[in-house]
Design a protein around this nucleic acid. Sequence first.
DNA 1: AAAAATGATTCGAT
DNA 2: ATCGAATCATTTTT
Length: 329
Amino acid sequence: MKPALFSVLCEIKEKTVLSIRGIQEEDPPDAQLMRLDNMLLAEGVSGPEKRGRGGSVAVAAASGGCPNDNSIEHSDYRAKLSQIRQIYHSELEKYEQACSEFTTHVMNLLREQSRTRPISPKEIERMVNIIHGKFSTIQMQLKQSTCEAVMILRSRFLDARRKRRNFSKQATEVLNEYFYSHLSNPYPSEEAKEELAKKGGITVSQVSNWFGNKRIRYKKNMGKFQEEANIYAAKTAVDATNAAQGNQANSPPTPNSASSGSFKMTNSGDSFLNLQSLGSYQSSPVGANVQPQLDSLHHANGSWQDAPTPSSITSPAGDPGSVNSDASN
DNA sequence: AAAAATGATTCGAT
DNA sequence: ATCGAATCATTTTT
C-alpha cells in the first residue's frame, strides 16, 4: 500500500510540473486518471461518504493487526483527512455543476445559431466532448492536488520517524545482550527475533531494525562500542561461568533478567572470549587501551566485517560534505 | 544551540 | 525476502 502510494505520487509530481505549465497534452490520461482514482478510493477520500458511524477503516488496518491502537494519533489524521475529503467533494461538485451549466449555455448558443446556419448533431456532440474534456482535465488537477495533500498528510502523521521513541532500558538490555554474545554472527533467526521482541516489549521488525543499525554502526567504528561490548561481555560471562561450572546448585547471583535463553548459548565459540574480555574489563575499567575483540572475529568465521581497522581507536571520521537541500515544507 | 545517539525508512544488490 | 548502506527525523547529551 505504501509503495503504490509513493510511486503514484512521484508520477504525479513529475507530471504536474510538466503539464500544469504547458497545455494539457497528456497522451494517455486514462491510465493515470485511473490510478489517481484508485488511490483516492483506497485512501477513503472518494469512497462512500462517512455518514455517521460508517466504520471505514481502509487506511489504518494495514499492518497485520498491530495491537498498538494509537487512536488518539489517528483521530487527528482522520480529521484532516476528512477535511481534505470535504474540500475535494465540494470542489468536484462545483466543477460538475459548472460543466453542466456551461454545456447548456453552449447548447443554447448553438441553438440560437442554428437559426442562421445549419448545425449538424455531430458538431454539437463534438462541442460537448470538448467541453467535457476541458473540465475533466480540471478534475484531474483537482485529483492530483488532493493526492498530494493526502500524501503530505500521511508523511506528516504516519511516518514512524516522526514519533520515534527510544527503547526501554529492558529492551536495549536484551538486544545488546544478544548482540554481544553473538558477536561473531549477530544475525538472529526469526525465532530468536521473536523471543527478543517478546522480552524487550517491542515488535519483531523493531528487533530487525535494531540489529541492522547495530551491525552497521558497530562495524563503522568499533572503538566507540568497546565499553559497551565489555560491559555486556562481562554480563554474559557471569552466566557462562555459572553454566560452565556445571552441577552446582547455586542460585544465580545477579537476578538481572531471566536467562532462560532459548538461544544456543550452550557451547558457542563466543563464550570463551567473554571471559577474556572480562579480564581486560576488570583490569582497566574505563577502556584505556582495550583491544578490539579481533580474536573472536577471525577465530569464528569472520564472515561479517572483513577489515575491522585494528589500529586507531579514535576515528575522526572525515565527514564528506553533506549538502542537504530541503525544499518542500 | 550544536553534536551525538538512535530508531525508522528507502534503495540497490544478492 | 533480507542485508548493507545512506539518509531522515527525532531524542538525548554536551
